[in-house]
Amino acid sequence: MPVVFRWKGYRFHFFSNEGDPREPAHIHVTKDGADAKFWLQPEVNVAYNRGFNARTLSLLSGVVEERREEIERAWDEFFS
């Protein structure tokens, strides 16, 4: 499971086996047993949320948006 970066104790990562056929680029975020998945395109959107409150989810969405290019680059490098 490649970790793209860590931020304030949150782990931003994806899985090496992302479905067959592979799902579009996205990022998983985990901390303290909670996790969420964000689609990156066409805009950052929550795919699912398990355990984060609305405020935290909004904060994480902003981090994903700010670092979307970095996440997409890591995804492309890993899967190419």
Rank of each mutant, 00 (worst) to 15 (best):
L60S: 00
E77C: 09
I27P: 01
F38K: 00
R22V: 01
N53D: 15
K8W: 06
E18R: 12
M1E: 04
G33Y: 09
P42S: 04
F52P: 11
E77I: 09
K37Q: 06
K8A: 14
Q41S: 15
H28D: 07
I71S: 12
S16D: 08
H28S: 06
D32C: 05
W75D: 07
D76S: 12
N45W: 06
A47K: 14
V29T: 11
V63L: 03
G62W: 11
F52E: 13
H26S: 03
I27R: 01
F5D: 00
G33W: 13
D32Q: 15
Y10G: 10
L40V: 10
S61Y: 03
F15N: 11
I27E: 00
P2V: 08
P24D: 13
S16C: 08
R73N: 10
A36S: 08
E65Q: 13
R68V: 15
E43A: 11
S80G: 13
E18G: 12
E43M: 05
V44W: 01
R6L: 14
D20Q: 14
Q41A: 14
K31P: 09
V3R: 03
L40A: 09
Y48H: 14
H26D: 06
E72N: 02
L59V: 03
E43I: 08
S16R: 15
D35H: 15
G51K: 00
R22G: 01
V3A: 08
N45Y: 06
A74C: 10
A74V: 09
P42N: 05
L60Y: 00
G51S: 12
W75Y: 15
F5V: 01
V29S: 02
I27N: 00
V4T: 11
A54N: 13
V44H: 01
H13D: 11
G33I: 12
V29H: 04
R68N: 07
N53G: 12
T56V: 15
S58G: 09
P2N: 09
R73P: 03
L59A: 08
E70G: 01
I71Y: 02
L40I: 11
N17P: 02
Y10Q: 09
A47Y: 12
R67Q: 14
K37G: 08
K31Q: 10
E43T: 08
N45G: 07
K37T: 02
D20R: 15
A36F: 03
V29D: 04
V64E: 07
N45F: 05
V4Q: 13
E70Y: 02
R22N: 02
W7P: 03
F12M: 11
V4E: 08
A25T: 05
L60G: 01
V46W: 00
E18F: 02
I27A: 08
E66Y: 08
S58D: 07
S80Q: 11
W39S: 14
V3N: 05
F52M: 11
M1C: 01
A74F: 05
R11L: 14
G19L: 04
K8T: 03
E69Y: 09
V3C: 14
L40R: 01
E66P: 03
E23I: 14
R67K: 12
L40Y: 04
W75M: 15
F14C: 03
E72I: 14
F14W: 05
F5N: 00
H13G: 02
H28R: 07
P42K: 07
I71C: 06
A47Q: 08
E23D: 10
E43N: 02
